[in-house]
Design a protein around this nucleic acid. Structure first.
Lengths: 204, 204
DNA sequence: CTTGCATTATACCAACCAGTCAACTAAGTT
DNA sequence: AACTTAGTTGACTGGTTGGTATAATGCAAG
């Protein structure tokens, strides 16, 4: 039941890549099928709609990214180092995409969410789910920073949300400006937002 | 030369509204023409492409919004009050759109930019131009806050960019979550990011 | 009245869109 | 060998897409 067939896997992979690089609206089912080398009939055997595929592709992407995220945000790592690793991973992946596609792609969940939240409720809910998952990592991080006395915070959940909103905002601006620069200064802004007391190590 | 005909005006107005409510990809030229009560021939007489219309519609939207922005960010107003007015204007307009359309619409420039920056260079450049215009207001604000000794900042331009990225991030998250709440707490996050010393007045 | 030009209206296009379908294959299972 | 199940194929549908060609209008100057 859970073993996904080769063509289903290929469709999910291709769809994720194409939607991330372009947008949901500018990629057609035919485009995806052609690039994936899968027949359109097979597409609609595997997924009941284009929108369904997008949701499934995002879930798959998350499942593949999760081990790395678990590692980056591991409680075994001091919170400030966690933050550093998180920022570095974003910079690395964004730069890699930039080299591959010749342009900044930003956060896929947010791009799709921003495009279709008002149009497709299932996609909005998925994007919302994705952001909430990421938020959990940031919440633990904020709480651990507070526990170590590195920051002062009344409402850790709210601060985490602020940090995460900031991160996604920076990624969006980087996409619009088509420039890595803001992403490279991501950590600086986060440190300021958190109000980390000892700035010697990480903030430039 | 500059006087725009009635149908051109109607097209720009309708396009802005429809693209903001839905998305560029999910609104067709026919949709816009029908709703604007303008014939398709007139559309392609006035604009040479759908993408051109979008760019023009955004420019028009900016021109109409500018007087309000100039007023909000007037140097005559103390910087902290400017910030408060800015946040209030965002909350008000977002709530108004929420009541009209039954959903959060976020920032139109950013939504379109996020959707099409990798697809349409003219649209990306326009979105980039829009954000840079807004950034100028925030830059002056940050500098004036520093001049009054309310914040400490080494690079005002960078802090302004951070604040603006945060604002757009919050608007995007509000759209994805379809919830005004984060927008209502916008000022709280900005104050923390700025590191305003005297929090008594504005931050709850 | 007529010429010329700025609009606007109508009809049309080929390409493309998401989605459907009956026929087919291949690999078990009995 | 007969039957079931899971997956594949490619042609097909009906509607929509952005964009065009051209005719009809209005209207102001000569």
């Amino acid at each position: 039941m859970k073993q996904e067939s080769e063509s289903k896997r290929k469709l999910l992979e291709t769809a994720m890549e194409m939607i991330w690089e372009s947008s949901y609206g500018s990629v057609s089912v035919d485009d995806i099928c052609t690039k994936a080398g899968v027949n359109k009939g097979s597409f609609y055997y595997a997924f009941k709609s284009k929108s369904d595929l997008a949701v499934a592709a995002f879930e798959r992407h998350w499942e593949h990214k999760r081990p790395l995220m678990d590692k980056i945000f591991s409680s075994q790592i001091p919170p400030l180092e966690r933050l550093d690793n998180y920022c570095q991973s974003i910079i690395t992946s964004q730069k890699e995409k930039y080299q591959t596609f010749g342009k900044m792609l930003g956060c896929p969940y947010c791009s799709l969410g921003s495009e279709l939240s008002t149009q497709d409720e299932k996609i909005r809910l998925k994007a919302d789910e994705m952001t909430k998952r990421m938020l959990k990592y940031v919440e633990s991080l904020v709480r651990d920073l507070a526990a170590e006395g590195l920051i002062e915070v009344k409402d850790p959940a709210e601060l985490a949300q602020e940090v995460f909103s900031y991160v996604t905002g920076v990624l969006m601006q980087a996409k619009i400006e088509n420039n890595v620069h803001h992403v490279e200064r991501l950590q600086h802004g986060i440190m300021r937002l958190l109000g980390v007391k000892n700035l010697t190590a990480a903030a430039s």
